[in-house]
């Protein structure tokens, strides 16, 4: 994977596979403490401890009966290479919250990449899920919850070209606006 946003897409796919009806994606860049946090929280079927161990370390386990992907270990490895790490809090029947932390300025830290396209792919590609994005750069936040949009549309498909246009603009502008202001603010703090 070339960008953290692609990892986010991949991790969110697990939430969809777990039958989640609500998925919240949080990306928080804190330039003052030099931290980047990414978390994906769902209300899917969750994992028991045994399965969690396999998911985190697919090559260490002797069990081969359950097939698991490599998405989680890849992101975990990326975080650990940047003085960070990953925690997974999961309860069968309740859901899963996966959190990763990176040293923001670490030389090996992948760029966040196109978060807007990741979120749009999920939102439009899986309309049965309630998607929430919370993106924060220092004190600036962009929060998007698709339930309001879906309520107003009342069953109209998100692939209607006017809807695509609206969603693309809203999400892109929200994220880009934050990048500009949030980082300026970070720089100001750092020098003041």
């Amino acid at each position: 994977m070339r960008e953290l946003s692609l990892h986010i897409l991949d991790i969110a796919e697990n939430s969809i596979s777990a039958g989640a009806s609500k998925v919240e994606i949080l990306v928080k860049e804190d330039t003052l403490n030099d931290e980047l946090w990414i978390s994906v929280k769902d209300n899917g079927k969750g994992m028991d401890e045994e399965f969690l161990a396999i998911v985190m370390n697919p090559f260490v386990t002797s069990r081969t009966t359950r097939k698991v992907g490599l998405g989680i270990p890849l992101l975990k490895q990326a975080a650990e290479a940047c003085n960070g790490g990953m925690t997974i809090d999961s309860q069968p029947g309740k859901g899963t919250e996966l959190t990763t932390k990176f040293q923001d300025s670490h030389i090996d830290r992948m760029p966040l990449g196109n978060l807007a396209d990741t979120f749009l792919s999920l939102l439009i590609g899986t309309p049965g899920v309630n998607w929430v994005l919370h993106y924060q750069v220092n004190d600036q936040t962009f929060h998007f919850d698709d339930s309001e949009v879906k309520r107003v549309l009342d069953g109209m498909p998100l692939t209607d070209y006017r809807v695509i246009e609206y969603l693309t603009n809203t999400i892109q502008n929200g994220i880009n606006g934050l990048n500009e202001n949030g980082f300026k603010q970070g720089v100001n703090h750092a020098y003041n």
Binding site: M1, L6, L9, D10, E13, G69, L70, G71, L74, N114, D117, T118, L120, S121, G125
Partner: peptide, 16 residues
């Protein structure tokens, strides 16, 4: 298709 490999191969850009 948006599995791990699909995403790594550029599926998000294709969908976009």
């Amino acid at each position: 298709g948006m599995g791990t490999i699909g995403i790594a191969a550029g599926a998000r850009e294709t969908l976009k």
